[in-house]
Design a protein around this nucleic acid. Structure first.
Lengths: 146, 146
DNA sequence: AACTATAGGACTAATATAGTCCTATTTAAT
DNA sequence: ATTAAATAGGACTATATTAGTCCTATAGTT
């Protein structure tokens, strides 16, 4: 069982891809899918969700694609996680909702807070920087910034 | 999606129940299931797993049941979580295994460490104490310690 | 012998997640 | 205008995971 699900992982990678090219031309889903080894149709869905959530701006038609709406340093991992898989919950115990005396939850709620704090403090820029160090952003389409 | 799954939650509750009666007589699965609102058959399975993992000691036959093998202060939540649902993973991305350059994982691995640290620091005793404050352990079978 | 409890294999059911298919729409280039 | 390349999005299908049940065996108490 994973805290970050596969689709979320995909979406994070896609976003990091865009972060690495922030300021450049739109990147097509096809290219993102290829580079990040995401099934194409699935990538489409994920990009749509990022679009609806206001994370990316889309342009249709040939040479269309996606760009980030905000600076990568302003986009947190927590935000992306919540868009794709919803908030990270500790447990969804039924008892908690019924009973006044849930033993388990109070302590675990603290953990939940810590996790959110961590994910809030982690931005796309940070991920992209780690990335850039190893994969020096060969620009595939159009070369240098327009 | 939950970090602590329902069955793990059940098992934690069962263990807290036993922790609250540590030093006393064995508690039957039936009683645990009743008190914690766990489906009986499922509770049996969970107790079996705690038994195989060496967390509880079982006695069969009438007036049988389970008791904790160790002091509740020596049993961590992490241990129980790992017995029931396995280690808490951040993601299981396929890329990480293939590629040398996983963008996502390095940072998230730090989070994983923090989570484990937290769960290691949380013991059954702590949970039971929180519990005891509100639900003052009415002993149902046998009354005071034998 | 009868009863009450755990042990445990083998399922079934339910739910959640991942992934696909198909059609429509937008836009750039020819 | 036509074509082609891209996003938009509804409606599925498939897969995997999790939860839960059923049944039989075994141990121990009375």
């Amino acid at each position: 069982m994973d805290i970050i699900r596969r689709n979320t992982d995909y979406a994070l990678r896609a976003a990091v891809e865009l972060a690495g090219r922030f300021g450049g031309e739109p990147v097509s889903t096809k290219e993102i899918a290829d580079r990040q080894k995401i099934p194409y149709q699935l990538a489409c869905k994920l990009m749509q969700r990022l679009h609806k959530a206001g994370i990316v701006k889309s342009t249709m038609g040939p040479s269309g694609g996606f760009i980030l709406c905000k600076n990568p340093s302003k986009i947190t991992v927590r935000r992306l996680v919540e868009i794709i898989q919803g908030p990270v919950r500790l447990n969804n115990c039924k008892l908690c909702r019924l009973s006044r005396c849930c033993t388990i939850s109070p302590e675990l709620t603290r953990l939940q807070g810590k996790i959110n704090e961590f994910l809030d403090g982690l931005t796309l820029k940070q991920l992209a920087d780690t990335n850039g160090a190893k994969k020096p952003a060969k620009s595939k389409r159009g070369g240098s910034k327009k």
